[in-house]
């Protein structure tokens, strides 16, 4: 895999970037003890934390990374080499994805130990949700970077996706408090099917619908990236 060469370099850069390091490694570690005070049901908590990792460690981190590499003219340089466009994006995304997966394992282990969550009955749905969710948020990050002029602006341009996903997936409050029409619409946001799949993996729940919604988001995300992704800085 030629993209791994990019991934390795990105991992070094990640290691040398204190802000990213703090956000991705220290913050979760600080969060972990807080979880000890939680005596709620473990499954929604794990599901919520996995969703949070997808939004922050994958989506937000990657909007920043893609914009930074574009503005440094690194993407432009990589594009005159042998790698294909998807390989370049995958390589740049690799460390963020690895970190996010690490966070998810950490959260699940900690919460599992505290609340005694049973092992998932249908782990492949969890796998499907995590992998599909990662793909969707990598694509959405690439698409969002097209509308982001500078690394600093990423804090603003990533807000719509972050807010919509957090509110719309029931991470912050249960969707049942909303009017049913609105709740139905929100179910089609990109994070919702991921969380539905996770819940289905632990307990019971519908599978076909979230898988279809996720697939549609992957198609939409791919289209958006092909259409709008910028390899050159804006002038």
């Amino acid at each position: 895999m030629r993209a791994v060469a990019i991934g390795k370099a990105e991992l070094k850069l990640f290691w040398r970037n204190r802000t990213a390091l703090f956000n991705s490694l220290l913050l979760p570690l600080l969060l972990a003890p807080v979880l000890y005070s939680v005596d709620a049901d473990g499954v929604p908590l794990v599901v919520g934390l996995v969703g949070f990792a997808l939004l922050m460690a994958v989506y937000y981190n990657l909007v920043t990374t893609f914009v930074a590499r574009r503005e440094e003219l690194v993407l432009k340089r990589l594009r005159v080499g042998e790698l294909t466009d998807p390989e370049i994006l995958a390589g740049a995304a690799l460390p963020s994805v690895v970190v996010a997966l690490g966070q998810m394992v950490l959260y699940s282990a900690v919460v599992g130990v505290i609340t005694g969550v049973a092992l998932p009955a249908r782990p492949w749905f969890i796998l499907l949700g995590v992998l599909g969710g990662t793909a969707v948020f990598v694509l959405l990050a690439a698409a969002s970077s097209a509308f982001t002029r500078t690394v600093e602006m990423a804090q603003v341009t990533s807000l719509p996706v972050l807010m919509a996903c957090m509110l719309g997936s029931g991470l912050v409050f249960p969707l049942s408090v909303l009017p049913s029409g609105l709740a139905t619409v929100l179910q089609y946001l990109p994070l919702t099917p991921v969380l539905e799949l996770l819940r289905a993996g632990w307990a019971d729940g519908p599978v076909l619908k979230p898988v279809s919604v996720l697939a549609v988001w992957i198609v939409l995300g791919t289209y958006a990236v092909r259409q709008w992704f910028r390899w050159d800085p804006r002038r």
């Binding site: 030629r2 990019i6 370099a9 070094k12 440094e72 690194v74 080499g81 042998e82 790698l83 390989e87």
Partner: peptide
């Protein structure tokens, strides 16, 4: 092989690391 008028490298990589990254993408 292409030398762009303006090509970039991640500023926090060393010269050897940037070259190794590039070499890793080549046949």
């Amino acid at each position: 092989g292409v030398m762009l008028q303006e090509g970039g490298f991640p500023p926090d990589l060393t010269v050897a690391e940037a070259a190794r990254m590039w070499a890793g993408t080549l046949t």
